[in-house]
C-alpha cells in the first residue's frame, strides 16, 4: 500500500474535495493500483536526466507593457453565481 486512507483524506482536503465514505475507500484502492503501476518508473535511473517541463523549448516569450481594454462589467460578472453591485460575493471566510 503506497497510499493510506489518511493520505487520501489529506489529499482530498488539499484539493478541496469532500469525499463520501465510499469514495474514500474507492479512491484509496484505485490510487494504490495506479501508483503500484507507476512504481515501474523507479526502475529507470534518471539521476543524470534533465526534466522536461515544456515539449517545445521556447524562452523569453514576452509582451509589451501596453494597456488593452478590460472586458465590460456585465461580461465580467455574467457568470457569477452570487454577486452584488459589481462584486463577487462569498460566504464568511473564517
Amino acid at each position: 500500500m503506497k497510499i493510506s486512507r489518511e493520505d487520501v483524506e489529506y489529499v482530498a482536503a488539499l484539493a478541496r474535495l469532500e469525499l463520501t465514505e465510499q469514495e474514500t475507500q474507492e479512491y484509496t484502492e484505485q490510487l494504490n493500483s495506479i501508483l503500484d503501476y507507476a512504481a515501474m518508473l523507479e526502475r529507470l535511473d534518471t539521476s543524470d536526466v534533465v526534466p522536461t517541463a515544456h515539449a517545445v523549448p521556447l524562452h523569453n516569450i514576452l509582451r509589451e507593457d501596453q494597456v488593452r481594454p478590460s472586458i465590460n462589467h456585465e461580461k465580467a460578472l455574467r457568470n457569477a453565481p452570487d454577486g452584488e453591485e459589481g462584486f463577487f460575493r462569498v460566504p464568511k471566510i473564517v
Partner: peptide
C-alpha cells in the same frame, strides 16, 4: 475528474514531488 485531481494533488504534495512528478518529467525527457 475527482480521481484525477486526487492523483495529481498527491503527485505534487510535499514529500512525493520528486518521486512522482519530477521523476515523470525526467522520464518524459527519455
Amino acid at each position: 475528474v475527482k480521481r484525477r485531481i486526487m492523483l495529481g494533488t498527491y503527485a505534487l504534495s510535499s514529500g512525493y514531488y520528486d518521486a512522482y512528478y519530477l521523476k515523470a518529467q525526467k522520464v518524459r525527457t527519455l
